[in-house]
Amino acid sequence: MLKLMRSPLKYVQGQGALSAVYEETKDLGTSFLFICSNSGYRNCHEKIEESFEGKEAELKFEIFGGISSIGEVERMQKIVRENQINCVVAVGGGSAIDTAKATAHYEKLPVVIIPTVVATDAPCTGLSVIYNNDGSFSHYIFYPKNPDAVIVDSDIIAHAPVKFLVAGMGDALGTYFEARACEKAKAPSLENGGITKSAMALCRLCYETLLEDGYKALKACENQIVTPALEAIIEANTYLSGVGADNGGLAVSHSVYNGFTALEECEATMHGSVVAFGTLAQLVLEDAPKAEFNQVLEFCVSVGLPVTLKEIGVTDKERVHIAAKNACAEGESIHNMIGDVTPGQLYDALIAADVLGQEYLAKRK
């Protein structure tokens, strides 16, 4: 298996980055469709329009339906064709981003990502998570290339709800541990290639950055200010986690998330929150050293990530069997683990992680 590395063609981050949108995208087209979340449109469209002021470019802003569903992607494709769009831009969170990437892929157009939150590592990855129209998980789409540009305005992130930054840290938390498991098993990355030393270095740096700057970034975001720590976590959540996951691979953490999407009580639980708990379950399965498990546990609690089933919305242990079975479905990344994982083994690991999390929280009281 050949080793490979992929990443966005361009990554731009900093305060006031929205003012540079035209300069960073002018070579990609002259007719732009901005697929926006409600808050993305509200917070960004004026600055984006100012960036294009006086330039020969047509801009169309469209607020999408909230979920990167099959039907929503088809609706955006129709808008692209009707308006002769030649560049698709996402302005919003993970679902808006996944919708834009899928739309651009099917229409064979370049795609630019402008995240307004850093709740997932979607901006930099060469894939989308697609849902059925009822909101249940459908499938992944793997693309032949990563986004043409990712532009992150740190001021926008600092003024977004704190819960998104925290969820992004949860998503990023799985990056190193899932890649490490794939490397041990000689499993392919998400790009279906061997894992390079560069990829593992990025994944490791992602985890180290979370430990060093996570709590400080949380406090900065709570006060809507931009600090070096917040800039570091924005990069970790967006670039290090995205490029790391793409080139390092997935294992238990993300399969656990996919499994819990089958439970109605978890519908309001953020992606990164479940991934964080799934990371604890993966460490149980690996029988990770006590010090390492406790380090991850302590980090989660310090920034407000869940360490118990109750915190992700589950109060009935019997329901965990359903999630475990779905997480172990054919094609899930959990099968990248050495020796594989059965639904029964995953159930036991999830319950064990829950018990250890409860004990830790009880000691803190």
Rank of each mutant, 00 (worst) to 15 (best):
L2V: 14
S7D: 02
P8M: 11
L9A: 14
L9Q: 12
L9G: 12
L9V: 07
V12Y: 15
Q13A: 11
Q15K: 15
G16Q: 08
L18A: 08
S19L: 12
S19P: 00
I35T: 05
C36S: 13
C44F: 13
H45L: 00
E50I: 05
E53N: 13
E53D: 12
K60V: 09
E62A: 13
E72I: 12
V73T: 15
R75T: 11
Q77L: 10
I79P: 04
R81H: 07
N83W: 08
C87D: 12
V89S: 10
G93L: 03
T103V: 15
A104R: 04
A104T: 10
L109C: 09
I113T: 09
V118K: 00
A119K: 06
T120L: 12
D121Q: 00
P123W: 10
P123L: 08
L127R: 13
Y131Q: 13
D134Y: 11
Y143I: 09
K145S: 13
A149R: 04
A149F: 03
V150C: 02
S154P: 08
I156L: 12
I157F: 11
F164K: 01
A167L: 12
G170L: 10
A172F: 09
A172E: 02
A172C: 10
Y176P: 00
F177P: 03
E178C: 01
R180K: 14
R180C: 02
K184V: 03
E191V: 14
T196G: 10
T196E: 05
M200P: 06
L202C: 01
C203Q: 05
C206N: 15
C206S: 11
L210Q: 10
G214P: 09
Y215V: 11
L218F: 15
L218Q: 07
A220N: 14
N223D: 11
N223F: 06
I225D: 00
T227I: 10
P228G: 07
P228V: 12
N237D: 12
G248N: 05
G248P: 10
G249M: 04
L250C: 03
N258Q: 07
F260I: 05
A262F: 01
L263G: 03
E264L: 05
E267I: 06
A268N: 14
A268L: 13
M270N: 00
G272L: 07
F277D: 06
Q282P: 07
A288V: 14
K290L: 13
V296Y: 07
F299E: 02
C300E: 11
C300T: 00
S302T: 07
V303F: 09
V303H: 09
L305G: 10
L309M: 14
K317Q: 11
V320I: 14
E330S: 10
G331K: 06
G339A: 05
V341G: 02
V341K: 06
P343L: 13
P343D: 08
L350S: 01
D354T: 04
G357L: 02
Y360E: 09
Y360R: 14
R364T: 04
